[in-house]
Design a binder for these strands. Structure first.
Lengths: 236, 236
DNA sequence: CGTCATTTTGAAGCCCGTCAATCTAGGTGG
DNA sequence: CCACCTAGATTGACGGGCTTCAAAATGACG
């Protein structure tokens, strides 16, 4: 199964939660540590390299995943086989919520960078919620966040000119980082995210770089001129 | 408040649930009738005319709404004020789920046709779930459906040529009706849904009509040649 | 150094956005 | 009853932005 093909899954101890990169932000952020310590025995931590699949559309939904660090893309495939990115997950985000409804995953989740995730059995979440109904608030909060992101994708990243879309994407990716840094996606990923071709993504990225709107730092990071990108995002 | 500006809200009795157009499909479809009868006293049924607002983005989320019949659009406004339709609701669908998280509505819900809705206090749903944790499954199912729709909007209705998008939209609207009928949207609504201009929506609609791909029935209904539209949707 | 994937750039064509005019239908008041 | 008004739909003309197809450049890696 593709969700077992990669990542070294190791057991989780209460100590892991204390030092967790997503501490205070994950699905279980709000529950009492003593309660959480009773659950973590069933958790597993795993790392993924770029391009590795965390779960695949159609896989039976047995786990939800809490992203500790890294960037994950959520994919749907069109009838023609082309992939479209319908969501992104970052540190603290929970993915695979469909597992809570005991159905197969609706999307494919693929690491875009080095990632660490915490794998939680969906049955355990359902059972815990049965005994602590107030936990539903935490679950609904995740779904609300995912619904919000979908709206952002539709309003910000799927409308306007290609220049505007790419500017908005860079600003979106900058949000969660310091010093106006953002992960630099491949041109193909930009295309799949924005509904444009790889060539157009490349052309505009190169243009932004020449114009000093972005500065490439490493192989996969860049620094953004947010003020200038903001102007482009708004169509000026 | 815009969600009180329209619609005649009237009390609900158990008898209403028996004859409910969304019977067997609404949020409370799975619970025991005896249990439901204890809740319905707090429900309110209302009707809305086209263009009337059910709730507005920013309104405090106090209710979830179960759509009995009709078509509702869910809107987000871009920074420039242009409206983008990020979702549609049809018979049996539940809207306003953000209310369960005790936050303001994230979208605006507007009737596109004559609608009847059942208004349910969010506090009542949260309370019922506290006493019957297994009810969470029904709630998660609604969120999953809304997530699925968002993915469809991104993959089917925001990619490909304008011809493809409009064909896919007509097929999507046909799904829930007999005899290949579909509600006929205004050109402006088509544009807001597909990320194209009103003029383009008009041009292609007229083209489809001339080509016999759709036949206008009344002011707001049409019959679709699904086989031909299917071919266009796939890019032939 | 050679290979392969990715990125960049070029050239041509078309789809769609923009601006504008015309047409249609429904509603109102004289 | 009809002239008038208005909102929405339709159609035209034009230009530009994006896609498509193609080739060259870059860079990672054995």
């Amino acid at each position: 199964m593709s969700n077992h093909a990669h990542g070294n899954f190791r057991q989780v101890t209460p100590a892991d939660c204390v030092s967790c990169p997503a501490h205070g932000r994950g699905l279980f952020a709000a529950i009492a540590p003593a309660e959480r310590d009773k659950l973590v025995g069933a958790f597993r931590i795993a790392t993924f390299n770029p391009r590795e699949t965390i779960y695949h559309v159609g896989d039976p939904g047995e786990y939800v995943f809490i992203l500790h660090f890294g960037l994950v893309k959520l994919l749907r495939y069109s009838a023609s086989g082309a992939e479209r990115i319908v969501g992104l997950a970052r540190s603290g985000d929970t993915i695979g919520l469909a597992a809570l409804s005991q159905v197969a995953y609706r999307r494919t989740a693929v690491a875009m960078s080095a990632c660490e995730i915490c794998r939680v059995p969906a049955a355990l979440v359902r059972d815990y919620n049965r005994r602590h109904p107030e936990f539903m608030a935490a679950i609904l909060e995740r779904y609300l966040a995912s619904s919000d992101m979908a709206d952002t994708f539709l309003t910000e990243l799927s409308t306007g000119s290609a220049h505007q879309r790419l500017a908005r994407l860079l600003l979106y990716l900058t949000e969660k980082h310091d010093h106006n840094e953002a992960p630099l996606l491949t041109r193909e990923e930009m295309g799949a995210l924005l509904g444009i071709t790889t060539e157009t993504a490349s052309r505009i990225t190169a243009e932004f770089r020449r114009g000093g709107l972005i500065a490439v730092l490493g192989a996969d990071r860049c620094r953004c001129n947010t003020e200038a990108l903001e102007r482009i995002a708004q169509g000026m």
